[in-house]
Design a protein around this nucleic acid. Structure first.
Length: 654
RNA sequence: GCCAGCGUAGCUCAAUGGCAGAGCAUCGGUUUUGUAAACCGAAGGUUGUGAGUUCGAGUCUCACCGCUGGCUCCA
């Protein structure tokens, strides 16, 4: 007999070898319409319902709607998809097919070129397999026996995996290596599991796209064909997910960039090079003005440095050794080689070295909105998120070791202040520590990592430690922002650097009259202005906060009789610093409203005969709609307050 | 870079290998309009670029350019 503990009750005794499914069925048989478990957690570890229980344990059901349930469903759907592909193209070789956060995929090696048109065929084959209700049968077998199974198929990928599993097991214990397979019907796959009970339990699924993917993600390896899909417990959840995917498209910054005339990327100019149109440039200017003001307020000095410089700068910094593939080819002028800058640091360092530095000057904080150019591979370019010319909101801090703690703390606080002002409140933070290959003294590393950790602790942020993921020249903190549609683009980076001060032989004279080496911190708060702007657009779906909106208000006169009043009003608002336009066209009010609403203008100010009489304006706010009439003074006060406080919502939003 | 798909007017999209079209935007006129699209007309193109097949190519073939999705959340 075994003692089974269930989540909502005392332990109960069952015969040795009872399956998890039987226990759960026994325990939860009451409600007819309750969702049936599709898996079980044994002592917290997901397992098949068919798992036999031979020892005392805690047991809980995995229900279809839960996170664990979704993973089971998706992983199982991946198997069924693979099975369907094999039915259609028997020569196909399967590689790996895991569940992901959003769905699942399977990597397949086949001579047949998969296209989108194949997806419906595969889907209907999957439906057939689902209707057959084939049980997923687990089998644990010695590794060499598993090898024989897949050798017959000529599947070198599975063989590679089996060998790897065997190696791992050999490293862990002394027992003979084993592997597990799952079989449903004619189809057997190497898999750790667990799975849903039968193919009938894979829920509602949809195949989404085909893509290429290197075996094991290594571009030295063969490129396989990957099919992406997703699955949910119910049809309704699947539909909702597909609807959200559609909605995400309407917030895509590339689409908004065109629709709102913010920026473009022009073939003739070159891939990955951004043209900022007047409206986009307006918003960018606001962002940069804020950035400059805050830097002066936080003890930084701003500097300007050139876009090109002699190649030897990057030879001395060591960048060329590591980043040559990402640098544009040098140009030759007057028999000297010049390089368009891929980073700003060498210039800042040359300013530091322009004269001897005293310990009294430190910390030195220099910031620059420096546009840099990096040759990114053509396939990775993506709107504003991945470009070849971008502007870093870069700064370099030169300090003494004893100042490191304060400096890092200040940078982190400053970062959060900036990110929160732009409306980003959720972050993913990582501290990356010393890698195997590194430069600099061990004591410096230890103290820096400790300083970064302390700063994070004090800020109260949740963070993960990525052991050994730091750069060779120093540890770092990365902050990714989570935007309104759940994307987490890379943003802030705070890096300690022991290498550059060494390479450029930086020094300051200490109170002991001796020369000492300063420590350098590189940091970018927004990361790249281009990418950050793209994030802002997607976060707000194009409806930027008032202080950032390129056009803050449009005046809509109803007839020609109001044109003079409109002009006066425009003058008053503009004099108060509001970005305002008049729409004097001979269009109906409805048409004007529609157009400017589509352009996501925050305030529409309507004036007709009634307003002319009273001297008030009728206000319509984006997302809020008709907000009634207001006196001009009150309107102006409201707008100025909203702008000055950099509020992310308009007054009157709930 | 690699795999797959796509490239037609400023935008969104049509067009069996047989005269390159529509809606919106633009321009001209009419209309003086009250909270998400007034009406009439005009203009707009070497179908990404270049070669090839064909009597004939937006459509078929090849090359190049660009864009889109992806390129280990581990059996």
């Amino acid at each position: 007999m075994v003692n089974i503990r269930l989540p909502d009750g005392p332990s109960k005794q069952y015969p040795d070898g009872v399956t998890a499914g039987v226990v759960l069925a026994d325990q939860y048989s009451g409600a007819q319409d309750a969702p049936q478990p599709i898996g079980a957690k044994i002592d917290g570890r997901p397992a098949d319902l068919a798992t036999e229980l031979h020892e005392d344990c805690a047991l809980e059901p995995i229900l279809p709607g839960s996170e664990d349930g979704l993973e089971l469903i998706r992983h199982s759907a991946a198997h069924v998809m693979a099975q369907a592909v094999l039915r259609l193209w028997p020569d196909a070789k399967l590689a790996i097919g895991p569940a992901t956060q959003e769905g699942f995929y399977y990597d397949i090696d086949t001579d047949h070129r998969l296209t989108d048109e194949d997806l419906p065929r595969i889907e209907s084959e999957m439906q057939a397999i689902r209707d057959e209700g084939l049980p997923f049968q687990r089998l644990e077998l010695p590794a060499d026996e598993a090898r024989r199974t897949f050798e017959q198929d000529g599947n070198r990928y599975k063989l590679e995996l089996i060998d790897e599993i065997a190696e791992r097991q050999a490293a862990e214990d002394n027992g003979p290596p084993t592997a597990t397979t799952y079989t449903n019907g004619q189809f057997t796959d190497l898999c750790r599991g667990p799975h849903v009970p039968t193919t009938a339990d894979i829920g509602a699924f949809r195949l989404l796209s085909v893509a290429g993917a290197y075996w094991r993600g290594d571009e030295q390896n063969k490129m396989l064909q990957r099919i992406y899909g997703t699955a949910f417990a119910t049809e309704a959840e699947l539909k909702e997910h597909l609807r959200l995917l559609e909605e995400a498209k309407t917030r895509d910054h590339r689409r908004l960039g065109t629709e709102l005339e913010l920026f473009s990327i022009d073939q003739m100019v070159g891939p990955g090079l951004v043209l900022w149109h007047p409206k986009g440039a307006r918003t960018r200017t606001e962002m940069e003005t804020f950035w400059r003001q805050e830097h002066y307020a936080h003890g930084y000095e701003l500097i300007y440095t050139p876009h090109i410089g002699q190649l030897e700068l990057w030879e001395e910094s060591g960048h060329i050794g590591f980043y040559q593939d990402y640098m544009y080819a040098p140009m030759s002028v007057d028999e000297r080689e010049y390089e368009i800058r891929p980073m700003n640091c060498p210039f800042h360092i040359r300013i530091y070295k322009s004269r001897p530095r005293s310990y009294r000057e430190l910390p030195i904080r220099w910031a620059e909105l420096g546009t840099v150019y990096r040759y990114e591979k053509s396939g990775v370019l993506h709107g504003l998120f991945r470009v070849r010319g971008f502007t870093q909101d870069d700064a370099h801090i030169f300090c003494r070791l004893d100042q490191l703690d304060d400096e890092i703390q200040n940078v982190l606080d400053f970062t959060l202040h900036v990110l929160r002002t732009f409306g980003f409140d959720e972050y993913q933070v990582a501290l990356s520590t010393q890698p195997e290959k590194f430069v600099g003294r061990q004591s410096n590393w230890d103290q820096s990592i400790a300083a970064l950790g302390r700063a994070l602790e004090q800020s109260g942020l949740d963070y993960v430690v990525q052991e050994g993921e730091g750069a060779f020249y120093g540890p770092k903190i990365d902050i990714n922002i989570r935007d309104a549609i759940g994307r987490v683009p890379q943003c802030t980076t705070i890096q300690v650097d022991f290498n550059i001060p060494e390479r450029f032989d930086l020094a300051y004279v200490g109170s002991d009259n001796e020369e000492h080496r300063p420590i350098m911190i590189h940091r970018a708060l927004m990361g790249s202005i281009e990418r950050f702007f793209g994030c802002l657009l997607e976060h707000y779906g194009g409806a930027l906060p008032l202080w950032l909106a390129p056009v803050q208000a449009v005046i809509l006169p109803i007839t020609d009789r109001q044109h003079d009043m409109a002009d006066d009003l425009r003058g008053r608002l503009a004099a108060a610093g509001v970005r305002v336009e008049c729409d004097n066209r001979s269009e109906k009010l409805g048409a004007k409203i529609r157009e400017h609403t589509t352009q996501k203008v925050p305030y529409l100010l309507i004036i007709g005969d009634r307003e002319q009489e009273s001297g008030n304006v009728s206000v319509r706010k984006y997302k809020i709609g008709d907000a009634g009439t207001m006196a001009v003074d009150a309107l102006l006060a409201e707008m100025r307050h909203t702008i000055e406080t950099k509020a992310t919502e308009l007054p009157g939003s709930e």
